[in-house]
Computed example of a mutant assay.
Amino acid sequence: MFVALLVGMLVTLAASALVVNASANYVHHAESARLNDSGRYALAIITQAVRQAAFVNWDASGVPPATVPETSANIGGLDAASVSRTANGIDEPLAGAVNGSDVLALRYAGSGAPDADGSVLNCAGFGVAAAGSEAQRGWSIFYVAVGGDGEPELRCKYKSAHGWGADAVVRGVDSFQVLYGIDTDTPADGIPNRYLNAGAVNTLDGDLVLEGATAAMRAQDLNRKTWWKRVVTVEVGLLLHGEAHSRPDGEPAQYDLLGAAYAASAAGNDQGVRISERLLPEGQRRRVRRVFETSIALRNAGGA
């Protein structure tokens, strides 16, 4: 009888181990599939927004306001920052970005008047009507913020007729990183010669010699000369994670966004391009993770 009980207990333990292992594998594969879908979806939304950046409706009568040289650039960004839902554009950036995540801001003139015709959409999928002035251009702003459940999420911020809004694109974001391909040739040939983060682009702008007797005139001259109007491609890196305990036991991993070579050279001064699980809180480890990257060429000139 004791032998039978012992054998039964061993069989039960073996079966339980198989069930636990099968359950862990199921969670791992389910979360991996979800991350693949989420990552592809996020990159598709960002790609669509970038390709629409600087859109101008040349069929409209008169000179489109977005083509005036004094108009601000149609693309911009921030390094290791976040933004609030209600602030104007990317003004008033917030510190404490999730793992040094970046902000990507895109603008376009829209199409259709007085109502949008649906050919130009913001990142939330709403149509943007033709802009009658520079300030009326549409916005698509991507940034990372922590949701109500404590999970960081990639959000899309946009401006509607009723004010600013922001919607979540995907949740479980460890880092969102952006590089900008700058055409430094004169005359410009549309081919990127340097890839810089937002801080480096702003540093180049800070070194420009501006002309003008007043601050307003110098601001207009900055809009004419800004390096943001030389952006021809955008590199995007996104690291997503799954639910807790969605990865089998193992050594903490390291993830490089925007390529291992860039992460190795810039990890010290571009926060968030290299994420090590060893440095994450205990509750954020042992999660399945995926890096998603893409390079997007602007279809329209970055500025006048």
Rank of each mutant, 00 (worst) to 15 (best):
L222E: 07
H245E: 08
G242E: 06
I275G: 02
T184V: 12
G212D: 15
D183I: 03
A261I: 10
D167I: 10
H241L: 06
R171Q: 11
L240M: 11
D167Y: 10
H162S: 15
K229F: 06
N269M: 11
H241C: 05
G272V: 03
Q177F: 06
S160A: 14
A219C: 15
G163S: 12
G237S: 09
I275F: 03
L239G: 03
V209Q: 13
N193G: 14
S175E: 10
G242D: 05
G242Y: 01
A213N: 14
L208T: 01
N223R: 11
G212M: 14
A244V: 04
R247M: 06
N223F: 01
K225W: 11
E211A: 15
G206R: 10
L257Y: 06
L257C: 05
A264T: 15
L204K: 11
M217D: 12
H241R: 12
G242H: 01
S265H: 12
N193P: 04
E235R: 01
D189V: 14
D174F: 07
P248D: 06
Q254M: 15
A266R: 00
V173T: 08
T233I: 13
Y180E: 02
P192V: 05
D256W: 05
R218W: 10
A161P: 09
L258I: 09
K225C: 04
G190T: 12
D249K: 13
I182G: 05
D185A: 13
P252D: 09
Y255C: 07
D270C: 00
A244P: 04
E235I: 04
W228A: 00
I275N: 03
A264W: 13
Y180R: 00
Y180I: 00
L204A: 07
Y180V: 06
E211K: 11
E235A: 00
D183M: 01
A215V: 15
L239M: 08
D270Y: 02
L258S: 00
R230I: 07
G199M: 09
V232N: 13
L238Y: 03
D185K: 13
G250P: 03
A263D: 06
V234N: 03
